[in-house]
């Protein structure tokens, strides 16, 4: 054997020892870390299991919240509807009252007018004429001015209350938006729950191969449908960005109208355009689109 080769091999072994010496403290740290992290991982495992058991409860609570919300909204609507109906009937009653008042007063006035005319022919009673005529004027004014003004004022106030009642009803649209948002949260909880269940199942399967039901848990793709639906007290289809509807409620319709306005010129000559034929703009949805694109979109709409 070449003595130089032996020398080289010894050199390599020496280098290995040097490396081992350098690695040893790191290996010790690694062993220490693993021994420390094992109980932490057990804690995490327990934590995941605890949270997993709590999640169906969180979903149930969300279902209760949305149901209570919806019931309260219905109660408010019922009450406002009753109020509105009452108000509308009061307004029409007032109108009738105004008419009744007018009829009641008009007849005596006509009578007084006749008397006044009769008296005017008798010389000695003529001196009372100004007084009688004044009375007639006052009676007429009483009807046209006082009663009518009061009744009109009440009618106006009642109409304003009816408007307010309608505003309350319109404000209740927030219930749809909040329930969609809660449905989105519930969907997220269910999603996390299913992911945790998969993780847990994988962990326990590796340990003892016990959990056989992991396959039954919904995968992330099950939630990735076009219209997302979350099961709360009823199946609620939701828009994950529904909350934007509240945040930007004043500007959103303007933005929509802006897009619609640019479609104002409708090409009626193109009858019944196929929806597929206008799909060329699909990829540009986040960009400004040209009038040609829009005209293509609106080809078939009357």
């Amino acid at each position: 054997m070449d003595i130089r080769l032996v020398g080289d091999r010894i050199g390599e072994v020496k280098a290995l020892f040097v490396l081992a010496q350098r690695i040893l403290p790191f290996m010790e740290d690694l062993f220490k870390f693993v021994s420390e992290v094992t109980p932490i991982l057990e804690d995490v495992n327990k934590e995941i299991q605890d949270n997993l058991s709590k999640m169906p409860n969180a979903s149930k609570q969300l279902a209760k919240v949305t149901e209570a919300n919806e019931m309260a909204t219905t109660e408010i609507m019922d009450t406002v509807d009753r109020l509105t109906n009452e108000l509308i009937s009061i307004v029409s009653e007032l109108d009738k009252l105004k008419e009744i008042d007018r009829n009641r007063i008009v007849n005596p006035i006509n009578l007084l007018k006749t008397i006044s005319e009769t008296i005017s022919k008798e010389k000695e009673l003529k001196s009372f004429l100004p007084e009688i005529n004044d009375f007639i004027d006052r009676m007429e004014n009483a009807v046209t001015n006082e009663h009518t003004e009061i009744i009109d004022d009440i009618s106006n106030r009642l109409s304003a209350i009816v408007d307010d009642a309608n505003t309350i009803i319109m404000s209740l649209q927030v219930q749809d938006i909040t329930s969609q948002q809660l449905a989105a949260v519930n969907n997220l909880i269910e999603h996390i729950q299913s992911r945790l269940a998969i993780i847990m199942s994988n962990l326990t399967n590796q340990e003892d191969g016990k959990r056989k039901d992991a396959g039954k848990t919904k995968d992330i793709n099950d939630y990735d449908e076009k219209i997302k639906v979350s099961h709360l007290h009823r199946n609620i289809a939701f828009d994950p960005d529904a909350i934007d509807a509240i945040d930007n409620k004043h500007s959103r319709q303007n933005t929509v109208d802006d897009i619609l306005k640019r479609n104002a010129v409708v090409d009626n000559s193109t009858e019944e355009q196929d929806t597929e034929s206008s799909s060329s703009v699909e990829g540009n949805s986040s960009e400004e689109f040209t009038q040609d694109d829009i005209d293509a979109l609106f080809g078939g709409v009357k």
Partner: peptide, 24 residues
């Protein structure tokens, strides 16, 4: 509640006559 531009475009392509965002 959907108010993204791409939503409106989708709706127009499906040929809705008009589009209103909630709350209206």
């Amino acid at each position: 509640t959907r108010g993204l531009k791409q939503d409106i475009i989708e709706a127009l392509k499906a040929r809705v006559n008009n589009y209103i965002v909630k709350p209206f």
